[in-house]
Amino acid sequence: MLLSTLSEMKCKQNVLKSTDGSVEFSQGDTVVLVGAYGPADCKESKQDVKEAIVEVNFRPKIGIPGIAEKYLEQFVKGVCESCIQRSLHPRTTFSIIVQVIQDRGSLLSCAINGTSMALQDAGISMKFMPVAVTVALKHKEEVSMETDCGTEDYDVIFSPSLEEEEKAFANLTLVFDSVKSELVSTYASGPMTSFQYQQCLMSAKNVSKSIVQFFRDSVSKKLAADVL
């Protein structure tokens, strides 16, 4: 079994002037631009008297958003609802817009990590920062001569590219919280055994810690320029 390393991440905060928080986030070749607004005014028909509502909009690179985007929106929305302290701002809305600039695989995890940084950049009160890792399970292409890994005939790939996602028999996106590294939500496709799932979960959990460290470093960099 091969554990490939995570692709390189880059993060540029406060890139848009009129948003409350914005981030250009890239994971390998996948790039998203995320803008976060809130707590903002909300139509009376949509208001919730107890807590703020969250809206997520996915904008594809070309064309208008379709069903695939709507599906991702719902997933990101669920993650945001669990991390934002919504009861602090009743009758308001948090609006998040994710513009896909380049999709070369692992789009969902890139969007969630970007959203996480955008919420942080907007100074929105959160319980934790969500951290997402995409994992692909792929059959080994040729059986290597030294079969020291025994029965395992698949590779685990972190942040797979589009081609790798296509070739994989199963894809998983796991979202953890930044504090205790507990699982927040999962997006899975393809058949896998519970052992394989557990294996992905454990290794993704370890990887998520390095992403939290990346978040910490980028926040420090932003604030280092901000010292009086």
């Binding site: 406060n14 607004y37 100074g123 929105i124 920062m129 604030l223």
Partner: peptide, 22 residues
Amino acid sequence: SKAGSLCFGPPNTFWIDCHQKR
């Protein structure tokens, strides 16, 4: 609950200094 640096004002107040627009 917000990302930033911890500040302390004597005698006993703590807060987080954070960049925000809203």
